[in-house]
């Protein structure tokens, strides 16, 4: 392989084995192609791919700060426009960079109609700093800043609905995806980069280290999230949901029991009350997006 030309997201990066963020980066560039400029936020993906003097990026790539990738991308887009250049601009960030600290810049860039695609790899906590809760951490997940304890069931709030917030900015295309469905994800990336204006994709990226499962299960866990209704894959075009992945739903327990971050819901004894609340979240998702496959009688 050393003799072969570089992949657009190349070997030698330092992500954990089985890392969904690394897989997402690879899939994004396979879909977007080499005529792409990537603007990365600080985070796992930035750190594992660019320890000086090594870079895993085969496309032009820039990292500035944790919270400003949308603003930096706005500048890149403006500069390309003035130079008459054709590269597509993709801003990449984890959920902390995206739904929390970067909100100001993202909101500004979307409101201005910036012609770029923002992709959030959502691993549902601040993983680079050691698994702290973010606005995208799901209800009851135990993290290092929302630990389960004698008087805590873990994270007390549900996930912030950033796709809806950005759709409300008038974004022409907003989608959710999962690394567990690579072809679907790539199709959405390809679609987003070719739609003028600000597009947003939030890709579910199960984190073996942060969630507590073996690296080989990354895709299996991602599939379970969708099959239980705790993650919904959908597309919104001009504010309307246009496509939803339908499933034959499984109980949320099937997903929860596979991950250490929810272990406190089952040990020392099963917490039926909290599990029922999580089941309600899945039920509401299913109802809202119409994900359930209804068998004909």
């Amino acid at each position: 392989m050393t003799d072969k030309p570089c992949n657009l997201f190349d070997v030698g990066h330092r992500a954990c084995g089985g890392c969904a963020a690394a897989l997402a980066a690879k899939l994004i560039l396979e879909a977007a192609g080499k005529n792409t400029i990537v603007v990365s936020a600080t985070g796992c993906m930035e750190v594992f791919s660019t320890p000086y003097p090594e870079t895993a990026w085969g496309v032009p790539w820039i990292h500035s700060l944790f919270e400003n990738n949308s603003a930096v991308a706005s500048g890149v887009v403006a500069s390309l426009k003035k130079q008459g250049r054709t590269e597509k601009v993709i801003a990449l960030g984890g959920d902390g960079a995206t739904v929390d600290i970067g909100m100001l810049c993202i909101s500004g860039a979307f409101e201005r109609g910036t012609d770029f695609t923002y992709i959030c790899y959502d691993n549902e906590a601040y993983m680079n700093t050691g698994i702290q809760r973010s606005g995208a951490t799901p209800y009851d997940a135990s993290t290092t800043t929302s630990p389960a304890g004698k008087c805590s069931f873990g994270n007390p709030r549900p996930k912030k609905d950033l796709p809806a917030i950005l759709a409300a900015h008038g974004a022409p295309y907003v989608a959710t995806a999962s690394v567990a469905y690579p072809a679907d994800f790539k199709k959405k990336v390809e679609k987003a980069v070719n739609i003028p204006g600000p597009c947003y994709i939030q890709v579910h990226a199960p984190c073996c280290t942060g969630w507590g499962f073996e690296g080989e299960k990354t895709i299996a866990i991602g599939k379970l999230a969708i099959e239980t209704g705790l993650w919904v894959n959908y597309e919104m075009e001009n504010g309307e949901v246009t496509r939803v992945k339908k499933v034959r739903r499984k109980p949320v327990e099937d997903y929860l029991t596979e991950q250490k971050r929810f272990r406190h819901l089952f040990r020392p004894k099963k917490n039926d009350g909290e599990i029922a609340k999580i089941q309600q979240i899945a039920d509401r998702n299913a109802e809202k997006y119409g994900t359930d496959i209804v068998l004909k009688k």
Partner: peptide, 19 residues
């Protein structure tokens, strides 16, 4: 831009892109 923070961040991006 929506803030000075983004003003300078956008300048950084545009400068790095060659403007």
């Amino acid at each position: 831009v929506e803030s000075e923070f983004s003003a300078l961040s956008a300048c950084l991006g545009a400068s790095a892109a060659g403007s």
